[in-house]
C-alpha cells in the first residue's frame, strides 16, 4: 500500500512538471496553429536566465523566475515579429522547418555563450530538502511544481474561457478575417498569446530544471515528450493537457518502477492506444 501511494505521488509530481513545461506548446499549437518546435529552446532560455540570475548575480529565486519569464519574452517578441508572423497559417512543413532552424540557432548560441556544461537553478532554502509525508520523503520543490502546475492550469483556463481577451483569441483563431472585420486587432492578439506561451515555456524551464537540467541540448532532448503531451491531450485544451500529463506521468512512473528494463515501452504503447481511440487527443476539438 505504501508503495502504491508512493508511486502515485511520484506520478503526480512528474505529471505536473510535464504539464507546466508543455502547456505553452499546447497554446501555440492548438490556439495559434503553429507547430512550434522551438518551444524547448524557449524553455531552455528561461532556464539559462534564471540560472545566471540566481547563481552568478545572486538574485533571489522569485526574482530570478520573473526575470527568466520576462527576459525570455523580450528575446522572443522580436523573433515573433520577424519570423513567426510569416508562418501563421502556413503549411505545417514550413512551420516545422522554420522552428527547427530557430532551435538549432538557439542551441548554437547557448553553447557558445554558456558553454556545454550543466547549469542548475539554485533553490531558495525553503524549497530545498525534503518533506516527510509519514510514509516517505518527497522533495519540497516537487510540491512547489505541483502547486505551480495547478495555478497555471487554473489561470490559463480562466483567461481563455472567461475573459474578453480569451474570446478575442478564440475568435481570431477560428476566423482571423472575420475577427479583424469586427474590430479585433488580431496581430496584437497573436503577439500577446505568443508572449504568454513563451513566458509559460520559460516558467516551465525554470520550475522543471531540477528534473530536466539545463544544458544546450535541452532544446531538442525533451521536445518529443512535450509534443506527445500536446497530441495526447489535444492541442489547445487546458483540461486535456492536464489529464494527459497525469495519465502519462502515472503510466511512465509505474512502468519504470515495475519493469524498468522495458524502458519507454509502456509510455509509447499508451500514447499509441490513446491516439488510436482519440485521433485529436483526449480533449481535441474538430478542426473548423
Amino acid at each position: 500500500m505504501q508503495t502504491v501511494l508512493s508511486i502515485a505521488i511520484d506520478a503526480l509530481a512528474y505529471g505536473m512538471v510535464l504539464f507546466v513545461i508543455s502547456i505553452g506548446l499546447s497554446v501555440t499549437m492548438g490556439l495559434m496553429r503553429v507547430v512550434n518546435l522551438a518551444h524547448g529552446a524557449f524553455a531552455m532560455i528561461g532556464g539559462y536566465i534564471a540560472s545566471y540570475a540566481a547563481r552568478d548575480l545572486g538574485l533571489a529565486y522569485g526574482f530570478a523566475v520573473l526575470l527568466a519569464i520576462f527576459g525570455t519574452i523580450v528575446i522572443a517578441v522580436p523573433i515573433e515579429r520577424l519570423l513567426y508572423r510569416r508562418i501563421y497559417g502556413a503549411p505545417e512543413l514550413t512551420q516545422v522547418l522554420m522552428t527547427i532552424g530557430i532551435t538549432f540557432c538557439i542551441i548554437g548560441i547557448a553553447n557558445y555563450v554558456f558553454g556545454p556544461t550543466l547549469k542548475t537553478v539554485p533553490l531558495p532554502s525553503e524549497l530545498q530538502g525534503s518533506v516527510d509525508l509519514g510514509f516517505r520523503a518527497i522533495a519540497t520543490h516537487r510540491i512547489f511544481a505541483i502547486v505551480c502546475g495547478l495555478a497555471v492550469a487554473a489561470g490559463l483556463w480562466y483567461a481563455i474561457e472567461k475573459t474578453a481577451f480569451g474570446v478575442k483569441l478564440r475568435a481570431s483563431v477560428d476566423n482571423a478575417a472575420m475577427a479583424a472585420a469586427l474590430g479585433v486587432r488580431t496581430e496584437i492578439v497573436y503577439a500577446v498569446s505568443f508572449a504568454v506561451a513563451v513566458g509559460l515555456a520559460a516558467f516551465g524551464g525554470v520550475v522543471g530544471a531540477e528534473l530536466l537540467p539545463v544544458e544546450p541540448y535541452y532544446a531538442l532532448r525533451y521536445m518529443v515528450t512535450f509534443l506527445v503531451v500536446v497530441s495526447v491531450g489535444g492541442a489547445g485544451s487546458i483540461p486535456g493537457a492536464l489529464v494527459a500529463c497525469l495519465l502519462l506521468g502515472a503510466i511512465d512512473t509505474t512502468g519504470r518502477y515495475l519493469m524498468p528494463e522495458f524502458g519507454e515501452f509502456f509510455f509509447y504503447l499508451a500514447v499509441i492506444a490513446i491516439i488510436c481511440v482519440f485521433p485529436r487527443g483526449l480533449a481535441g476539438r474538430a478542426k473548423g
Binding site: T3, A13, R136, Y222, T254, R256, Y257, P260, E264
Partner: peptide, 11 residues
C-alpha cells in the same frame, strides 16, 4: 532517456 528517477529510488 530516464528523466524522473523517483520510481527507481522506490525500487
Amino acid at each position: 532517456a530516464t528523466n524522473d528517477f523517483s520510481p527507481i529510488m522506490q525500487r
